[in-house]
Write a protein that binds this DNA or RNA. Sequence first.
DNA 1: CTAAATCTATGACAAATATCATATAAATTA
DNA 2: TAATTTATATGATATTTGTCATAGATTTAG
Lengths: 226, 226
Amino acid sequence: MNKCEQCIVRQFSSLKALTKDELVKMAECKTSYTIKKGEAIFEEGEVTNGIYCVKDGVCKMTKLSANGKDQIVKLIKAGELLGQRSMISDEPANLSAIALEDMEVCFIPKAEVMQFFNENNQFSMNVMKTICNDLKDADDQMVAMAQKTVKERLAETLLYLEDTFGKNTDGTLHIQLSREELAGMIGTATESCIRLLSEFNKNEYIELIGKKIAIKDRNKLKRLAD
Amino acid sequence: MNKCEQCIVRQFSSLKALTKDELVKMAECKTSYTIKKGEAIFEEGEVTNGIYCVKDGVCKMTKLSANGKDQIVKLIKAGELLGQRSMISDEPANLSAIALEDMEVCFIPKAEVMQFFNENNQFSMNVMKTICNDLKDADDQMVAMAQKTVKERLAETLLYLEDTFGKNTDGTLHIQLSREELAGMIGTATESCIRLLSEFNKNEYIELIGKKIAIKDRNKLKRLAD
DNA sequence: CTAAATCTATGACAAATATCATATAAATTA
DNA sequence: TAATTTATATGATATTTGTCATAGATTTAG
């Protein structure tokens, strides 16, 4: 059993407010999992009864829409927590969490989290601020979906992906998304997404290197995205 | 100065968790406002430094998008609180709150709210649950914007408006939205919204009575909305 | 009450986007 | 390795949606 106290990623989440004692307690009740790329941590409608702390890897939070397409609502990376909203609302998960890379996550049962919640004001405040931030992002994204064109949203998303997940030495986006997944993020058909990537490629805003994407002209993309 | 203790609408919000003493304290620090239809309670970017409790009336929460259109993110009615997210995040308002009818609202300064927050666990839990609910709604709405057609979103919205705000004796929706505002809710051009309303009218899903809208066939609308 | 402004409505057309078909490239499996 | 599946790419076309123009209806202001 690894000690939570020595786990670096906790510094990046609400958990940074926990005391040494609380961390020891958490280490005792947590369960560690390895999740393979493509596997679900949990799925929409599932009762989770706790939260997950992402130690390594990235996952997508998706929702299946009536037309059968998976909409990617957000991406979660190492250091972030999963399932906080469902836990607080006391509801089944509203979104599925699917690994985009091999992941390491720790599960912390609801009972313990709620105890930290009640005893540690800073922790609960941190969680609340995180959720408030998620709400702001969701509102903004909703407006983008409603008011921006697919082209604008693609430009915006490419910049977000580079800013959030960085790039490889060859300049390609570090995060590996299929065209279908990228389309699922911007809310469009896969073919439309591919077509616009080709267009961006021709215009030299980006470069397509096999399945990978390298951003060539941030400014032009930024201007496009508004 | 009216007593918060005797105010019925507090029962419908997170404030229901407050004790008698806390309510007395709140009554002493609150400010009451009358807001005329069309006026703003606060605007996007404004620092609010507190929350508003809606005593009467309905307002729209909007965000101005880059193309100059106002997207309506949500509607708030009597009994609900406004500005909680900004207060907790310690940020300027992300959305504008504009009265759709004449309103009565009470402003409660941040300092007092935060004190209740720290001293009354049930209250802070209520606020948190409300925000979690807002987050779920926002995520769902985002997916709807991305994946549903304008027609589906219009059908969905009409049902939501009847369910949430009720109807008049003649069957028309009680809430008064202009075609432009309705378009702003579903995220489309005003003309497209009007055109679809005409179509729904021809198909007898709804009836247009002047500027008012009456739902005639809930089932067909529901089937359309998915 | 009348004139002006605003809102609702509709036609004509343009632009954006989705769908279907098909080809090629890449990855996976037998 | 060959065969099969899956992912990417692109053309052709249909559908959806937006934009511009205009007209009538309603509301507002003088």
